[in-house]
Computed example of a mutant assay.
Amino acid sequence: MGKTSIIVGASSDIGKAVLMTLDGAGNQFIAHGCHNVAALENMRSSMQGNLHVLGADLSDAGSCEAFISEATTLCNSPDHLVFAQAQRLKLTRFKKLSRQQILEQLDVQMMSSMMIAKAFLPAMVKRGNARVVFVLSSVTLGMPPAAMADYNIAKYAQLGLMRSLAAEFGTKGVRVNAVSPSMVDTPFLQDIPNNMVIQNAAAHPMRRNASSEEVASTVAFLLSDGAEYINGVNLSVTGGECV
Results as ranks from 00 to 15, higher is better:
Ala25Cys: 08
Asn152Trp: 00
Lys126Phe: 06
Glu213Asn: 09
Val215Ala: 11
Asp13Ser: 14
Met20Arg: 15
Gln199Asp: 15
Asn177Ala: 07
Asn129Asp: 15
Pro193Tyr: 05
Ala227Gly: 13
Met196Ala: 05
Ser12Gln: 08
Gly26Ser: 05
Ile30Cys: 03
Pro193Asn: 02
Ile7Val: 15
Ala17Ser: 14
Val176Pro: 04
Leu54Phe: 06
Cys64Gly: 15
Leu136Pro: 02
Gln48Thr: 10
Cys34Trp: 15
Gln85Leu: 08
Asn42Lys: 14
Ala117Ser: 15
Val179Lys: 01
Met110Pro: 00
Ala178Phe: 00
Arg131Leu: 13
Leu121Asp: 03
Thr171Cys: 02
Val139Trp: 00
Ala157Val: 01
Leu121Lys: 11
Pro205Gly: 07
Asn195Pro: 00
Gly226Lys: 13
Leu222Glu: 13
Gly2Thr: 07
Pro145Asp: 06
Val82Trp: 03
Asp225Gln: 15
Ser12Asn: 08
Gly55Ala: 15
Cys75Lys: 09
His204Val: 05
Gln199Asn: 14
Ser46Asn: 14
Thr238Ser: 14
Lys172Asp: 12
Thr21Lys: 12
Tyr156Lys: 01
Asn231Cys: 13
Ala149Pro: 00
Ser59Thr: 15
Asn200Pro: 04
Leu58Cys: 10
Glu168Thr: 08
Gly240Thr: 05
Ala56Gln: 06
Ala154Gln: 01
Gln109Phe: 02
Tyr151Ile: 00
Ser5Gln: 10
Phe94Tyr: 08
Val237Cys: 07
Val176Trp: 04
Leu223His: 09
Ser59Phe: 02
Ala86Met: 13
Ala202Gln: 14
Glu228Gly: 08
Phe188Asp: 05
Ile6Phe: 05
Ala17Gln: 04
Val37Met: 02
Asp225Leu: 04
Leu74Trp: 11
Glu214Tyr: 03
Arg88Ile: 11
Thr21Asp: 10
Asn152Phe: 01
Gly2Asn: 08
Met162Val: 07
Asp60Thr: 01
Gly49Pro: 04
Leu159Lys: 11
Phe188Pro: 00
Thr171Ala: 12
Ala157Ile: 00
Ser113Leu: 07
Gln85Asp: 12
Asp79Met: 06
Gln101Gly: 08
Ile116Ala: 07
Ile198Lys: 14
Ala31Tyr: 05
Lys126His: 13
Thr21Met: 07
Ala220Lys: 10
Gly226Ile: 04
Gln100Ile: 11
Asn76Arg: 12
Phe120Tyr: 13
Asp191Lys: 07
Ser11Lys: 02
Glu104Met: 09
Gln87Cys: 10
Ile116Asp: 10
Leu91Phe: 13
Arg93Thr: 02
Lys16Leu: 11
Leu22Cys: 08
Ser5Tyr: 09
Ala17Glu: 09
Cys242Tyr: 07
Glu70Trp: 02
Ala130Arg: 05
Glu241Gly: 02
Glu168Tyr: 06
Asp60Ala: 09
Glu70Asn: 15
Val174Thr: 10
Val132Phe: 12
Val184Asn: 04
His35Val: 03
Gly26Trp: 12
Ile68Pro: 03
Ser113Glu: 09
Ser112Ile: 07
Lys155Glu: 03
Ala149Arg: 01
Ala154Cys: 05
Met162Pro: 03
Val197Arg: 12
Gly232Tyr: 10
Asn152Pro: 00
Val18Ser: 03
Val108Ser: 09
Val82Pro: 11
Cys242His: 06
Ala86Tyr: 09
Ala167Trp: 07
Leu89Val: 06
Ser180Asp: 00
Asn129Gly: 09
Met115Val: 00
Pro187Asp: 11
Ser236Phe: 01
Leu222Asn: 04
